[in-house]
Nucleic acid binder design. Structure first.
Length: 450
RNA sequence: GGAGAGGUCGCAUAGUGGUCUAGUGCGGUAGUCUUGAAAACUACUGAGGGUAAACUCCUCCAAGGGUUCGAAUCCCUUCCUCUCCGCCA
């Protein structure tokens, strides 16, 4: 959400943002509704003022005067009710459109239509360290080479009794899966490792609710446009009744983490707030039926440790935090010794609410490509306006805060990179050093059949 | 899930149809006094909207709707909290 005054003053910039981000919004319709809304507000408020004055007067009037006045008021009341009804329907429409207004992207954000227009920003591998994207020779050396025929993670998982997709589909449904044995420990160990990392970086860790109310998802920007991606749950009564409040399974802990601060006026001294959430995440993945159907790449439920920062409304500070969050995720991948690249996400591939966004993609050998594992975003005050997260600055002025978030680690997707990059010629899989204490071994080998 | 009691300006409370422009205490801010601090005293102290601005303008007493000339107060729905009972990881 943006300030309507800001929208009025920046119509051209906004038109461009709507085009570049491919947002489906008729800005002129919104501006027209805004004009109507303000006119009606003035009208209804003056009716209200008349009525208020009359109500004050009435106890002082004689019976005859009162009767005459009441008749007069009935007429005013009729107009008032009409104007009010009109105002309500216009405000409803206005509010719906306001939720679709995108944030204006940063000047550094590439303009493009989809993920093919994202721009590589940096590369990293354990052998080469950071590599500049313009250094094409070195970039080509980033993917590790194997002296044997590699297996994909699904095959490794099956052979080492770590993953069971068949029974997962049978029990859970399409894209269901079981993790087994050492991989369960690695999966949980990753979460634990990420939480310890974030605590060391000053984050307060939270186990967040996955089941959230609508406002949290509207506030984060997942609603209204991403509704199809979210599971709605509830008992039979709640799902059937229009009146009962609905609950949803969040696709990330971000809505819960920022929802935690909704409708609050914070003190500037409390900022920046660094919080990290661990939660199960649910995504319906409708609209991706034919995509990534093999293995653990695209699943409907997973675990994630997420980083969220709420900072003061300052462009430089927002930029710095976006970089800082990116560096923390990079540090995690570096300690896991996984090759990755960072992409500067283009306008067409970023969400409507985002000001600037980096994705981190980790090398997945069997795909012969990088797969998205992290997403780092600066929303400026777009989410804070939706959720009413404000703070009192040093001059006592109340301002909307900035919000940012980035993945710390999401699993099982990251397990694809771990299993495939760490596989050995004999079909076993090494365990990354930093995870060995959780898995209890340095190598995962085939088990004797039971 | 059932029964009952509740939700008031940061906190605690008062307020059951017009005197509420929401009282009081605590907390907070500023000032007086003081070498400094504390205490005491005095003043101020919620958030939004409309307007170029002022403003004797409008809104907000959990949220939404209703009754009424007029609602914190009465009615309905939803959400939440507490107590008891039931079920349960």
């Amino acid at each position: 959400m943006l300030d309507i005054k800001y929208i009025r003053d920046n119509v051209d910039n906004l038109r461009k943002a709507i085009t570049d981000k491919r947002v489906d919004l008729d800005l002129d319709a919104l501006l027209d509704l805004d004009t109507q809304r303000r006119n009606l507000l003035q009208e209804t408020e003056s009716f209200q003022a008349t009525k208020n004055a009359f109500s004050k007067e009435i106890p002082t009037l004689s019976e005859e005067d009162k009767a005459a006045k009441l008749l007069e008021m009935q007429e005013i009341d009729k107009h008032h009710t009409e104007a009010l009804e009109k105002l309500r329907s216009i405000e409803a429409e206005y509010n719906n459109l306001m939720l679709l207004v995108p944030n204006i992207p940063s000047p550094e954000t590439p303009i493009g239509k989809d993920d093919t227009d994202n721009v590589p920003w940096s590369y990293w591998s354990p052998e080469l360290g950071h590599v500049d994207p313009t250094d094409t020779d070195k970039v080509a050396q980033i993917p590790p080479t194997f002296t044997f025929d590699i297996k994909d993670h699904a095959a490794l998982g099956k052979d080492l009794d770590l993953i069971d997709i068949d029974r997962g589909t049978e029990v859970s449904g399409f894209r269901g899966y079981f993790l087994k044995n050492e991989l369960v420990l690695m999966h949980q160990g990753l979460m634990f490792y990420a939480m310890e990392k974030l605590r060391s970086k000053g984050f307060t860790i939270m186990q967040t609710p996955t089941l959230v109310r609508e406002f949290a998802l509207t506030g984060s920007g997942h609603f209204p446009t991403g509704r199809a991606e979210i599971y709605q749950v509830g008992n039979a009564a709640n799902l059937e009744s229009e009146d009962k409040e609905k609950q949803f399974l969040a696709g990330t802990s971000e809505p819960a983490l920022i929802g935690y601060y909704a409708n609050q006026i914070l003190e500037e001294s409390q900022l920046p707030i660094q919080v990290s959430g661990i939660s199960a995440c649910y995504r319906s993945e409708v609209g991706s039926y034919g995509k990534d159907t093999k293995g653990l790449y695209r699943v409907k439920e997973f675990l994630k440790v997420e980083q969220v920062v709420i900072c003061k409304a300052d462009m430089v500070e927002g930029e710095n935090w976006l970089a800082k969050l990116r560096e923390i995720s990079e540090e995690i991948l570096q300690e896991l010794k996984l090759p990755y690249r960072v992409l500067n996400i283009c306008t067409g591939d970023m969400g409507a609410g985002k000001y600037k966004m980096y994705d981190i993609e980790t090398w997945m050998p069997a795909r012969q490509g990088y797969g998205e594992t992290h997403s780092d975003s600066n929303f400026t005050d777009w989410q804070a306006r939706r959720l009413d997260i404000r703070y009192r600055d040093s001059e006592g002025k109340i301002q909307y805060a900035y919000t940012l978030n980035n993945t710390a680690v999401a699993s099982p997707r990251i397990l694809i990179a771990l299993l495939e990059n760490y596989q050995l010629a004999d079909g076993s899989v090494k365990v990354p050093e930093v995870l060995q204490k959780y898995v209890g071994t340095d190598v995962i080998t085939a088990k004797a059949k039971k």
